[in-house]
Design a protein around this nucleic acid. Structure first.
Lengths: 205, 205, 205, 205
DNA sequence: AATGAATGAGTTTTCATTCAT
DNA sequence: GATGAATGAAAACTCATTCAT
C-alpha cells in the first residue's frame, strides 16, 4: 500500500535525507502490514524492521516508540479514507448520489486495504484519543454533507447529529460484512444501492 | 455486573463445589471489570485475581489461560445483551415499536455496562471467531425480526440481509456516540426515536 | 507392575487399614508408570493421583513429598531386580552358569519393566545417594559371586572390584541396547551367551 | 572447560559479530558448569546468565530455549570426548593398545570434566534422541575399531555389535566408579590395564 | 544513518504443598 | 481417610528500548 500522507509526531525525527525518507516509508508500510495482519500487540518492532528490511535499531531513528508509529499510521489511514472519498465524489452531484458514491468508494477502499479495520479498531485500545477523533471527524464530514443537502432542499430540514452517526454506522458495518468478510468486488454496488435507498427514504423531505 | 449465564469451555475445569462456583464467578466479574477498564492486553492475570480477592494460582483452577476467560466473557456478554433486549420487547408490539424498544434497551444497557464495547471490540483481536460470531448472531436476530415484520405487512417485502447489518450498524454507532461517549440517560429516548423514524421511513412498505 | 516389596520411609505414614494399604499401592504403581513414561520432573503429583484414581490430597496421606515416593520407588526397583535375579539363579549352578542366568534374567526383567532404566537413571539427579547406593550394592553382589567363583576354582584368583564394575557395565549397556531399545524377547539369550563367553574367557583361570 | 566445537541449531541465532561469539561461548560454558553441578532441572536460565555475567535476556539472543542450549551442549560434549580419544590414539598402535589408550584417555577426560556424566545422562530425560544418538555413535566407533582389529588378525573373527556395547558399558561404568566417584588420577592406569586384560582375553583369537 | 547486541522489567503459567470440609 | 479448592513461590520467556560500534 503506497500512501503519500503521513502525520509527523516527533518533529525532531523527521528524516533529512532522501535515503532517510525512504527508510521511514518502508517502516510505515511494514507496520501497516504487520498491525493489519497480527494486530498491534502481536506485532513486534523486530517483525516490522525485518519486514521493512532494516536493522532493529534503525526503527528508533524515525519513531520514538511503538505507540508513535501506530499513531502516525492511524492518521495516515484516516487521511487515506478521506482522500479516496474525495476522489469519488463530485461537488456537482446530487446529495444522494454523493452519499452513494462515498459509500461505494469506501467499500472498494476497504476491500483493497482490509488492514484498515483492524488498525482503526485497535486504536480504541492503543490510542483512544485518535480512535474517537477519527470517528468524530468522519461523522462531522457526513453531517456537513447532509446539512448541505438539506439546504439544497434535497433532504429534510431537521438533520441531526444522530443522523450522521446512523449513516456512518450503516456504512461501517456494511463494509465489515461485505468488504472485509464478504466478496467486496461482487457486492459493493448492490449494497451501496440498498443503503442509499434507505437514506433516500429515511432522510428525504 | 451480575450475569447468570456463562459458557463453559474446559469441562474438567468446572467447579465441583459451591465454594468453587463462587470463586469462578468472582473471577469472571473481576475480569469483566479489568478488561473493560484497561483492555485485554493491559490487564494482567494478577490484576484480575487481586481484584477478585483470590490467589494468583486459583485463576488456573477455573480457566486454562487468559484467552479462555476472555472467550467465556464474550459469550457472557453476548448472552446478556440478548437477554436485555428480550426483556424489553413484547411479541404483541408492532414491528417498529419492537425495533424501537430493542434499541432503547440496548442504549440503556450499554450506558450501564460500558465495558461491553471494549470487550466485544477487543475480541476482534483476541478471538476473531467469537467477534464475528457475535455480530453475525445479532444481525441474524434483527433480520428475522424484520422479515417477520414484512410478513405481517408492516415492512416492505424485499428485506435483505444488508438491511439488518445497516440497522445493527446504526444501533452500534448510536450506542457508541450517545451511551458510551455521551450522557446516555438523557438522550436514549430521543436517539431511539430518531433511529426508529429512519427505519420507519426506510423500510416501511 | 505388581511388586510386593517396598521400603517405608515415613514410618508415621504407614497405612493402618487394608483400604489404606491398597491406596498406597495404587499410588506407587501409578508413580512407577508416570515416572517411567514421563520422567520425574514431567510427572506431576496430580498425574499420579489421577492415574491412581484417588484425590490429589490423598497423596499426602501416604507420602510426605514427591521425592519421598520416588525414593520408595527406587528401593522397590532395586529390590525387584534382586529378587528376579535370585529366582533365576540356583546355588548349585556353576559360576559361569550363574552369571549367565543372572544376565538373562535381568534382560528379561528390563524388557518387561522398561521403566526401570528411567527411574534408576533419574535417581542420579533426584536422589544421588540412592543412585550410588543402588549401583554399589549391585556391584558388591557381583563381586561376591565372582570371589565365590574364584574360591571354587572356577575363576582366576586376582578378582578385583573393577571386574565387578566391568561386568555390571556390560550388563547394563547390553540391557539398554537389547532390552530397552531392541526387541528383548528375540535377543536375550543370544546376547547373554556372548557376554558370558566374554566373562568366561576374560575371567577364567 | 574450553571447547572449540559446537553444533548450531537455530541458524538465525548465530552471532554476527565477534562480541556476539564471545557472549555465546560464555553462555555455553556457564551452562555446562550449571548443568553439571545442579542438573538440568535445578539450573535456571538466570543461574546460567548470572554465572556467564550477562543479562537474562541475552540468553535468548543466542538460544531459543533451555532445551536448545542443552542440546547444543550434548553435541559439544560428544564431540569433545571423541576428540580426546582421537588425540590419545595412534593408528600405528596395536589393536589392544588402542583400546587401552582410548579408555585411559576417557578416564582422564571424565576425571577432569566430571560434568560430562551428568549432562549425557540427563539427556535421557531432556532430549532422548541425542542421548541415544550419543551412545549409538560411540558404540559404532568401538565396533569399527574391533572389526579392524579382527581384520588385522589381532581379534577373533566373530566380532558382534554386542561386543562393542559390552566394551562401552565396561568403560562407562569404570569411569563412573573410578573417575567420577573415585580418585581418577591414582587409578586410571591400573583400571585401564584390568579392562584391557579382560578385552584381550575375551576377544583375542 | 545504520547496525545488532545487550538489557531487565514484566507476564503467563506450573505445580508441590496445605487445609477446610 | 478422602476430597478438591486454595495458595504463592518460582521459572521460562518476550520484547520495547538503549547503546556501543
Amino acid at each position: 500500500m503506497e500512501r503519500g500522507v503521513s502525520i509527523d509526531v516527533g518533529a525532531d525525527k523527521a528524516p533529512r535525507t532522501e535515503r532517510g525518507r525512504r527508510t521511514r516509508r518502508k517502516l510505515l508500510d511494514a507496520a501497516a502490514a504487520e498491525f493489519g495482519e497480527r494486530g498491534f500487540h502481536e506485532a513486534s518492532i523486530s517483525d516490522i524492521t525485518r519486514r521493512a528490511g532494516v536493522a532493529l535499531g534503525s526503527f528508533y531513528t524515525y519513531f520514538g516508540s511503538k505507540d508513535e508509529i501506530f499513531r502516525a499510521l492511524v492518521g495516515d489511514m484516516s487521511e487515506a479514507v478521506k482522500l479516496a472519498a474525495r476522489e469519488a465524489v463530485d461537488e456537482a452531484m446530487g446529495t444522494l448520489a454523493i452519499e452513494r458514491a462515498a459509500l461505494a468508494s469506501f467499500l472498494r477502499f476497504a476491500a483493497e486495504h482490509k488492514e484498515i479495520y483492524r488498525i482503526i479498531d485497535e486504536a480504541e485500545f492503543v490510542d483512544p484519543a485518535s480512535y474517537r477523533r477519527h470517528y468524530e471527524t468522519v461523522a462531522a464530514r457526513i453531517l456537513q454533507r447532509l446539512r448541505t443537502g438539506a439546504e439544497k432542499g434535497d433532504l429534510r430540514d431537521d438533520i441531526d447529529e444522530a443522523h450522521a452517526w446512523a449513516v456512518m454506522g450503516m456504512n461501517v458495518f456494511l463494509g465489515l460484512r461485505y468488504a472485509i468478510w464478504g466478496d467486496g468486488q461482487v457486492e459493493a454496488d448492490r449494497v451501496a444501492a440498498i443503503a442509499n435507498d434507505l437514506i433516500a427514504r429515511g432522510l428525504s423531505r
